[in-house]
């Protein structure tokens, strides 16, 4: 479903993605972790081409993402993206936020788009907030709206870039619950997170990155209980004891 082939990317001289090879099959939940600056956010941002790559290829559903001829609109409709800072549109209500893409990208009729948007808001438990503006919501609620906005195009893949890192601790649970529900629906997910509880519970594989390289990748039990590299062991001990 998602494949990285010898992907390299530089920010000026900084080698942020160093020869990445990775296959993510349909339905997999991949948790990506690593120290800050290790390239984990960049890795998933390349999947829907928020970032360009300089070498190699990324293929999503047989489509080469970084080819010039690729229809990005169609590709991006199949990939939902959730940001650390939510990035809801502050001048629109919750419902308008969620309806924007179906109306303008899929060109659905307003009534139909509204129906789908309300379904997605129900899925994240926020139907009653549909008329509110983002500023009136808590961080956890905003992030759930952002997830609904990602889901509304019925994507096959959902990418999460540290979805709980900007939240107060008591709100992390509600967002993770929504994500766990997505897992049970069989969604293909790449999640950059340090929520190790989430990783242990639902991840099929955990990927550990450092300095732009994939250092380790494996199932969560092996990764947490028996890391193969000193770098991963050190990282795990730090985040579990902090």
């Amino acid at each position: 479903m998602i494949e990285f082939k010898n992907v390299n990317k530089w920010f000026d001289k900084l080698h942020v993605l160093n020869d990445i090879n990775l296959k993510i099959p349909k339905g997999e939940v991949l948790v990506i972790c690593g120290p800050s600056g290790s390239g984990k956010s960049t890795l998933i941002r390349c999947i829907n081409r928020l970032e360009k790559i300089q070498q190699g290829q990324i293929i999503v559903n047989d489509i080469p993402v970084h080819d010039k001829s690729t229809n990005l609109t169609k590709l991006r409709a199949e990939i939902g993206f959730v940001f650390q800072q939510f990035h809801l549109y502050p001048h629109m209500t919750v419902l308008q936020n969620v309806m924007l893409a179906p109306v303008n990208v899929k060109k659905l009729a307003k009534a139909k788009a509204e129906k789908i948007a309300l379904e997605k808001l129900e899925q994240v438990g926020l139907t009653e907030k549909s008329a509110a503006y983002p500023a009136q919501l808590s961080g956890g609620q905003q992030q759930r709206v952002a997830i609904a906005r990602g889901l509304v195009m019925s994507p096959e893949i959902m990418l999460f870039d540290e979805p709980t890192s900007a939240l107060d601790p008591e709100m992390i649970g509600e967002v993770l619950d929504v994500m766990v529900n997505l897992v049970s629906e069989g969604m293909t997910m790449c999640v950059v997170t340090h929520e190790m509880g989430f990783a242990k519970k639902v991840a099929d594989r955990v990927l550990f990155m450092d300095e732009g390289k994939i250092v380790e990748i494996g199932n969560p039990t092996d990764f947490f209980d028996n890391p193969q590299t000193d770098r991963a062991a050190e990282f795990i001990s730090k985040i579990l004891t902090h």
Binding site: T73, R76, I79, F83, H87, Y89, L100, A101, V105
Partner: peptide, 14 residues
């Protein structure tokens, strides 16, 4: 903020 562009880009808006 750049995030507004990125959110709109990710949704497939031209």
């Amino acid at each position: 903020p750049k995030g507004q562009w990125e959110a709109a880009t990710s949704s497939g808006l031209n």
